[in-house]
Each structure stands twice: as C-alpha cells, then as structure tokens.
Computed example of a mutant assay.
Amino acid sequence: MVKKYFYMIGNAHIDPVWLWNWNEGLEVVLETFRNALKLMEKNSRYKFTASSTIFYKWVKELDKNLFNKIREKVFEDRWYIAGGWIVEPDCNIPCGESFVRHSLYGQRFLLENFGKICEIGYNIDSFGHNWMLPQILSKSGIKYYIFMRPKPDEKTLPENIFWWESPDGSRVLAYRIPISYTLTGERIGRAIEELDEKSSRDYVMLFYGRGDHGGGPVEEDLKIIERYGERVRMSIPIEFFKKILEKYNDIPVVRDDLQHHARGCYSSHSKIKYLNRLSEATAIYSEIFATISKILLDEKYPKKTFREIWLNILFNQFHDILAGTSIWEAYEDVIAS
C-alpha cells in the first residue's frame, strides 16, 4: 500500500449562534483565537485556519492587540483567513445579491486590513450549495471551495476533489472534507490510517480541532500528527490546493447543485425566512431609490447606513440562523435586530 501525504488543517469551526446567543458566540471567538496564538507560541510548526470576516471585525473592535497578533501570523502564512464572506451562510435561501454582498464586504475588509483578499470559499457546515455559487465565487477572486455537506451518502460525487462549474462555465476547484472537520485525539490517527487505504489521490486534506463552540486543536493533537513524520504536515488549505494543481490534470468536473442535507430546515422558522427576504428586498429597493435621489436631486447617498444594514442582513444569514436550527432565544435577538 502506497502511503499518502496529508495536509492537516488546524481549525475551530465556530457557530456564532446555535445553541447559544450571539454574545456567547462572540466570547467563543475571542477565546478560541487567543488559544490558537498560544499554541503557535508552543509549536513553531502549528498553523491555523478560521473563516468569517465578521469575527475579525469583532476582534479589531474589542481587542486591538489580539487583532495585531493575528495579522502578524497571517503575514507569516501560519494563520489563514478562509471564506472571504461575512459568515458561513445558508447557501440556498439568500438571494443572489446577498451572496455578492458577502463577497463585497468580506473581501473588502480583508483587503483593507490584511492587504489581500481570500482565494478559498469556505462553507464547511452549510447544508447545501446552489449551482450559481462558482460564478459568484470566481468573479469575487475566489479560486477554491471547501465544504462537507452533503456527505457521500447524500450526494454521489466522482471524488472529493473536483472542478465545480456553474452553467456559465465559471468554475472553482472544490474539496469535500472527508470524515469530519472536528477530528481530535486518536480520531486523527484513525482518520489518517483509514484514508491511507481509501483515498484515490496521493494527497489528502484533513481537518482537526474542536468545533461548533470553538476550541480548536490542543497540544495532544499536534503530538499525534507529529508521530507520523514528514508525510503528515500541519498546513493551511491554500498549500493543499496548489499541490493538487501541480500534480494532477485529470480532475473531474461537476455541473450540478451540491444537495441535500437536513432538508427539513427549509420549512423551519418560516418567520425568519420571511424577514430575510423582506430585508433583502427592502435594502435593494432602498439603494435604487437613494441612487435616483442622488442623480436627480443631489441628495446625499447614505453609503455607511446601507453598509451597516447589509452587514446585519448577512450576519443573520448564518446557516444555523436562517435555516431555522438555533434555539428560540437566539431568534428573539434576530427579530429584534
């Protein structure tokens, strides 16, 4: 049996809202990011990946010192900011303009604060992915896409790595995470050994670290990875994708939606879905009339106000909010906002 090469992605999936309110999610973000930096100080080979530009906006506003330390690690290629969007949203319900605004405001924040945009779309916990996304992603500077759902028993794909192509021909190189994005402890070793046998490619990307309520990897996880030697390396996703493109020219193409997972969520909490569509339409038409007023009457265009309105809409499109899978107390906050 030929041993595979593993790109191990230290991560901490964070649901800012789910079985808790957003204020608890905020504290989880701060604590998780601080823990990631502490682990980097203890192990010079450790690298960390986290998505959602709203998290970094919170950090910048609440703990400037923490934000500056993260910037240093980003410039060292030890911390990768994935996604390029405000949050990891539901990828079926929002209108097309909302996905564009996720990219617009998310990528702009990264460019202004880190000097570069993100190249990797990242919706690892969303329940499905509509077919227009490769077009929006590629036109937003994103070349790659990482997801986990639907799983193999829900959607048959030629393999975990493939070109995902929209009807207009736009494409991104997509990767379905095998097994889980929350591998920890000895589960890491078992996953490596399993994919040594099952993977159709010589290069595999695995995700490890405690998630949902944050946390991330711990020292024990790194020790387990290090016992496998050089073929199992701590990494960031961009290194894996570049290796795949360097080694392979026979990657299959998928021209389809990536569906379905947890279908029942699309009929849950219908009021939240109604408010989302109402908010989207109101924001879009308000911008149109504000533009007309600017052109015809020279009225001041409320650019900052519209940005804040959109950021609120986009945050509330987080997959566990919009899909209707959070606790009721969380929806009281959403309705109030």
Score class of each variant (00 low, 15 high):
Tyr56Val: 06
His102Ala: 11
Trp18Gln: 04
Trp58Pro: 00
Ile93Arg: 07
Asp212Ala: 11
Ile136Pro: 00
Tyr301Asp: 03
Pro134Asn: 07
Glu219Cys: 07
Met234His: 10
Leu19Lys: 13
Asp221Ile: 12
Trp85Asp: 08
Arg108Trp: 10
Phe67Ile: 12
Val28Cys: 07
Glu88Met: 11
Asn130Phe: 09
Leu245Arg: 10
Phe33Ser: 15
Arg108Met: 07
Lys38Met: 09
Asp333Lys: 14
Pro150Ala: 03
Ile292Val: 14
Glu230Met: 02
Lys247Val: 12
Gly215His: 03
Lys151Phe: 07
Arg190Ile: 00
Lys60Arg: 15
Ile142Asp: 01
Leu311Ala: 09
Trp18Pro: 05
Met40Thr: 06
His269Asn: 14
Ile86Met: 03
Leu245Ser: 05
Ile117Met: 10
Ile70Val: 14
Val232Cys: 00
Phe315Val: 10
Ile284Glu: 06
Ile295Pro: 04
Val28Arg: 11
Ser170His: 09
Leu39Gln: 04
Glu31Gly: 12
Leu311Met: 14
Gly214Tyr: 03
Ser235Cys: 07
Met132Asp: 08
Glu27Pro: 06
Ile225Cys: 01
Asp168Trp: 11
Leu314Gly: 01
Leu322Cys: 03
Thr305Arg: 15
Asp333Phe: 12
Arg45Pro: 00
Leu137Asp: 03
Val87Trp: 00
Thr325Trp: 10
Glu27Asp: 14
Gly185Pro: 06
Val172Glu: 05
Cys91Asp: 03
Phe147Ala: 09
Gly324Trp: 06
Phe289Ser: 13
Cys95Leu: 14
Leu322Trp: 01
Ser293Ala: 11
Tyr5Trp: 10
Asn130Glu: 13
Leu245Tyr: 05
Arg149Gln: 12
Glu239Asp: 12
Tyr46Pro: 06
Ile179Phe: 00
Leu19His: 10
Tyr80Asn: 06
Met205Asn: 02
Asp77Leu: 06
Asn130Gln: 13
Lys273Ala: 10
Asp153Gln: 15
Ile224Trp: 11
Thr32Met: 10
Glu287His: 05
Val100Phe: 05
Phe147Gln: 10
Ile192Tyr: 02
Asn123Arg: 02
Asp90Gln: 01
Tyr80Cys: 09
Tyr285Ile: 09
Glu299Phe: 13
Lys60Asn: 11
Asp333Gly: 08
Arg171His: 08
Lys300Asp: 12
Tyr80Gln: 08
Phe109Glu: 00
Tyr203Glu: 15
Ser103Ile: 15
Val28Asn: 06
Ser286Leu: 10
Gly10Gln: 01
Tyr46Ser: 09
Phe6Val: 00
Phe207Ala: 05
Leu314Tyr: 04
Glu159Val: 00
Ser180Gln: 07
Glu220Leu: 13
Leu62Thr: 08
Asp298Asn: 15
Asn21Ser: 13
Lys60Asp: 14
Asp90Phe: 00
Trp131Phe: 13
His129Tyr: 07
Gly84Leu: 03
Leu245Val: 01
Glu246Thr: 08
Leu297Ile: 05
Gly121Asn: 05
Leu275Asn: 11
Met1Ala: 08
Leu195His: 01
Arg34Thr: 05
Ser51Cys: 11
Leu62Gln: 13
Arg176Met: 12
Ile14Leu: 02
Leu322Ala: 02
Phe162Asp: 02
Phe241Val: 03
Met1Phe: 12
Pro302Phe: 13
Arg187Gly: 14
Glu76Ser: 13
Gly128Thr: 08
Tyr56Ala: 01
Pro158Arg: 14
Thr282Trp: 09
Pro217Arg: 04
Gly115His: 02
Asp212Leu: 11
Met148Pro: 04
Lys47His: 01
Trp164Glu: 06
